[in-house]
Amino acid sequence: MGVVEDRLAALGLTLPEVVPPLAAYVPAVLDGSRVYVSGQVPMVDGALPVTGAVGELVGLVSPERAKELAAVCALNAIAAVKTVVDDLDRVERVVKVTGFVASDPSFTGQPGVVNGASELFGAVFGDAGVHARSAVGVAALPLGAPVEVEVIVHVRD
């Protein structure tokens, strides 16, 4: 195990199996020194733990729960990166994170939800986990997921 996987273990995390594609795409593509990770939903053991829009109203996914799910998306993204680079210590920087939050029309806390992913990348990759980011509210996501995260990382040869 390398430094990154040691950090994961110290956080009590293990890399999951990569979520099989839900349509005509692959989970990650290595193109030169960049890995482009397809949008990852918060699958755990092949299923979404919760579905629905995020918001403050009863019956919606709470922003706190959605933030936890964004971290699951990030962990799934790290697993996808590993499938194309083998050694996570090759990651030099998480360059860009885009988070999509299925949002109730009145919900404007998307940045706080996507912090779940950003904070996990920072905990796992240290300074290399600091990244540019967008947090976007959307009407719906695949399979009814409350959140989806896509990532671009820079790797060394």
Rank of each mutant, 00 (worst) to 15 (best):
R133I: 10
G126R: 12
P27C: 06
Q40R: 07
A117W: 01
M1G: 15
V155A: 14
A53F: 00
S103G: 14
L141S: 04
V18W: 15
P111K: 05
V44M: 11
G122Q: 10
V61D: 00
V84I: 04
T108G: 13
P111N: 01
V138L: 10
V130I: 14
G126L: 09
D89I: 07
G39W: 08
R65S: 04
V3R: 13
L48P: 01
H131S: 13
A47S: 10
S38M: 05
G109L: 09
H131K: 12
D157Y: 09
T83H: 02
G59I: 01
L69N: 06
P63R: 07
R93S: 14
V29G: 04
A123D: 14
G46P: 01
G112F: 06
K67V: 02
R90F: 00
V72P: 12
G52M: 08
V58H: 10
V85M: 06
T14P: 07
Q110Y: 05
V94T: 00
G99K: 10
A79H: 03
L60D: 07
K82H: 10
P42Q: 11
A74M: 13
L13F: 14
V84P: 04
K96G: 00
A10V: 06
G55Y: 04
V114C: 03
V81E: 02
G12Y: 10
F107G: 05
S38N: 06
L57C: 04
T51R: 11
L8G: 10
E56S: 14
G122T: 15
V61A: 04
D45N: 15
P20G: 12
L141A: 08
V61R: 01
A24K: 14
V136L: 13
L11N: 11
G52H: 06
E17W: 06
E150F: 00
V95L: 06
P27N: 07
G39M: 12
L75S: 08
V54Q: 07
E92S: 15
A10M: 13
L141P: 11
T98G: 02
D31I: 08
G32R: 15
L60F: 14
E119T: 09
V124H: 02
P105H: 06
G32Q: 14
V50I: 12
F125G: 11
T83P: 05
N76I: 14
V72F: 07
V155E: 09
V41I: 13
P63C: 10
